[in-house]
Design a protein around this nucleic acid. Structure first.
Lengths: 166, 166
DNA sequence: TTGCTCCTCACGTCACGTGAGGTGGC
DNA sequence: TTGCTCCTCACGTCACGTGAGGTGGC
């Protein structure tokens, strides 16, 4: 586990020496559990790059982004894993476009894919805005309640026994 | 079901004529299901004001606020029902205070209750702020992605066949 | 040999969904 | 009688949690 040469290196352009992750490492880095990662594999949401002979799973470093992304969609947005799979599918459009480009695919098809992705992304933004507004107004209620509670406290007068001033 | 005299009346100070709700009405008003309300009763989260002879449940109009509140804590904040129960317990402080006042309870005890409620409320606000920040930055990412996608679209040039102008 | 991580069943849990079968008032 | 809502089991589902029992390299 100490075979990483330089942990502070910018891991972006050089993918040749990027170390694959064991399931435990990936889970720890992403703040989740190995059980969750195996379950996601079971339902076809996150595939390891390789299954070794002894059954051990290996994940590419990019899997970390995917895992955190899934968690965001789950916890912050409230999507089910089925919905998340649909989102991720349309998000793989860049890969699809690259493949199309390599295959000299028709422009019309590429445009269609892009427009789909734009629409899906806009729907997601819409949902995020909705959530943000509801969360924000809920927060405002809570702040108002805090003020009311503190007013009630003042109403009771200063504390009887000053144990330690502050 | 049409026995409500004035549906646009301010239902706040006058609780004498406020009609009790059947489980189906409460569910519909709150945007949830009867199954959910029965489950919440089962785990002691939401009790009807009365069980009629035939087993039918009746809820006070105030139950609607409680239900929507529980839903907010569940969907927006991400609390489990166990956590929500704890939050609701400390939120019943006003009722407790009123009872204490009626019983001429000691000021020290009332102060303790209030301070507890203030602390719990502040923790909740903290959590809301955390969520708001994460959601907001996630939204920013999405907006940036939207810009990139539209740039890609422009890169493809204008549509081949103008079907209908906007 | 001991520790550590990995593996596959497989049952448990949380928060409900979803019929199955029956009751009660217009 | 037909519709509508209500009721209680009770099994199913989703997204995992949690051992049970076993393997593989330092």
């Amino acid at each position: 586990v100490t075979s990483a040469p330089a942990p502070s290196a910018p891991a972006e352009a050089e993918a040749t020496t990027a170390p694959d992750l064991r399931i435990g490492e990936l889970a720890r880095l992403a703040g989740t559990t190995t059980r969750t990662l195996r379950y996601w594999e079971e339902i076809g949401l996150l595939a390891p790059s390789a299954h070794l002979g002894n059954g051990e799973r290996l994940y590419p470093p990019a899997a970390l982004e995917r895992v955190t992304h899934i968690r965001e969609l789950q916890d912050l947005v409230g999507f089910s894993l089925a919905e998340i799979r649909a989102v991720l599918d349309t998000e793989e459009i860049f890969d699809q476009l690259r493949t199309l480009k390599r295959l000299a695919g028709p422009t019309a098809k590429r445009r269609l894919l892009l427009e789909e992705a734009v629409a899906a992304n806009d729907r997601l933004i819409q949902r995020l805005d909705d959530r943000l507004e509801r969360l924000s107004s809920f927060r405002d209620e809570r702040v108002a309640k805090a003020a009311r509670l503190r007013a009630k406290l003042d109403e009771l007068g200063p504390p009887q026994e000053p144990k330690s001033g502050s």
